[in-house]
Design a protein around this nucleic acid. Sequence first.
DNA 1: TAATAGCCGAGTATTTCTGTCAAGTATTTA
DNA 2: TAAATACTTGACAGAAATACTCGGCTATTA
Lengths: 158, 158
Amino acid sequence: MLRLSTKGQYGVRAMYEIARGSVAGPVTIKEISEKQHVSVAYLEQILNKLRRSGIIRSVKGPGGGYVLARDPGSISIGEILKELEGPVAITSCLDPKEGCVRVDSCVTHLLWKSLGDNIERFLDGMKLQDLLQGNQLMGLDRRDTGKNTHAARRGRPA
Amino acid sequence: MLRLSTKGQYGVRAMYEIARGSVAGPVTIKEISEKQHVSVAYLEQILNKLRRSGIIRSVKGPGGGYVLARDPGSISIGEILKELEGPVAITSCLDPKEGCVRVDSCVTHLLWKSLGDNIERFLDGMKLQDLLQGNQLMGLDRRDTGKNTHAARRGRPA
DNA sequence: TAATAGCCGAGTATTTCTGTCAAGTATTTA
DNA sequence: TAAATACTTGACAGAAATACTCGGCTATTA
Ligand code: FES
Ligand code: FES
């Protein structure tokens, strides 16, 4: 249950490659395709969306490719996924494009909303930078409370 | 993104009705159908699965219907959903039935695993009882750390 | 035995997903 | 300017999952 589409998955992996290679100049679709085992044609579709959203920039012509438009520390996984798959919407009632008439009398609305918020908080908090550094484990708690900080939270001091 | 199927949604709503009405005897599919606006035929399919898993029991014949097989405080939303939609598996690589060969070299595996665990913790922690009592808001933190307990955690003392 | 209510397996329409394809545009270098 | 490189765009098609429906059967009770 709750599966992510391949578009979202490939998108994140592509962004990882771009972030990784950007330091040495633009990264071509072909490179991403080879390293991440995704077809060039499919990647075109994905990267186009991300470019339109302003999250990456493209450079045409020989020597061209894609470059990060912003700092990897300011780009969240949530942002990438939302661009490719739309907002987190556990149910159609939670989708801003659909909505629901009987929200008020609904027993489960708040439950799904709460779950959705939880997921969104996770995805927005996880940055591309974390992926680069291998900090893919989000601590059990999102906030340090001073006490039980034995297992979690490497990196991202600020 | 990350939408729950209607089966899961209806399943939870049906369980709510059964829990609610169980005190006054078995609840019929027809009643659930009317109260939750889901067709009888579809509900049959859903409740059958839940019955086979032992989460509810059925009573045949006139005056029959469905009854909770266990205490509503011991039945979690996660349990209901897993029975109807299979395990939480953000990607196919996380699905126990599929798996992946290059887990070790994968940059994103841990990320999705972490997200999945997060979701599962939420769903397993939320009980049917909470739905009955209107405690559908899961606090921002799942655990009380002694300090900042101003906003969260009503009910379920043990 | 007749009415009630659940049990079960198949089947189908629809939608979403997962890509492919072909033709085009922009940029750089020789 | 011509060739080569790379991105751009929209349409489309096969596969899979979803969201149901249908028809007939079984158990229980009055
Ligand atoms: S039915 Fe729309 S919010 Fe529950
Ligand atoms: S490709 Fe399977 S775990 Fe990432």
